[in-house]
């Protein structure tokens, strides 16, 4: 009987503390369900890709300061936009050119359509 009473008291105290904290700033998290990351049909990435306003990016290589693109033989790609080549050699803090296009990761269905081998992705550190 004594043990049961102690257990009851302990749980009562603990429970009251929990419910009280539910009303506080940090406790408001209690009321929200975790959003599953597996709802592909409603996923944010799917919605963005389906908007038709984005361009799929295959890879990205840091444009190092000084004109050398990491992962290459030591020279900027001949296909690099003039703006990016110029900007890469400028000191840090000099305004940089960026594309007006919105780049997104390639959705799996698009990747399956692409028969050409993707350019080597810089995997240094990734």
């Amino acid at each position: 009987m004594k043990t049961n009473s102690w257990l009851f008291f302990s749980l009562l105290v603990a429970s009251q503390a929990v419910f009280a904290e539910d009303q506080t700033h940090s406790g408001q998290a209690v009321t929200n369900a975790v959003q599953s990351g597996s709802h592909a049909s409603a996923s944010a990435g799917h919605s963005i890709a389906a908007s038709g306003q984005v361009t799929s990016g295959v890879s990205a290589i840091p444009l190092a300061i000084g004109g050398v693109v990491s992962g290459t033989a030591g020279a900027l790609s001949a296909q690099a936009a003039h703006g990016s080549a110029k900007a890469a050699t400028a000191p840090i803090g000099t305004p940089l050119d960026i594309t007006d296009e919105t780049i997104t990761v390639m959705p799996p269905d698009e990747a399956l359509k692409n028969d050409k081998p993707a350019p080597a992705k810089s995997d240094k550190g990734i």
């Binding site: 990016g57 840091p62 693109v69 940089l96 692409n114």
Partner: peptide, 9 residues
């Protein structure tokens, strides 16, 4: 990271 991005095309 400021990068050179290769697009799907």
């Amino acid at each position: 990271v400021y990068s050179q991005i290769t697009t799907a095309d």
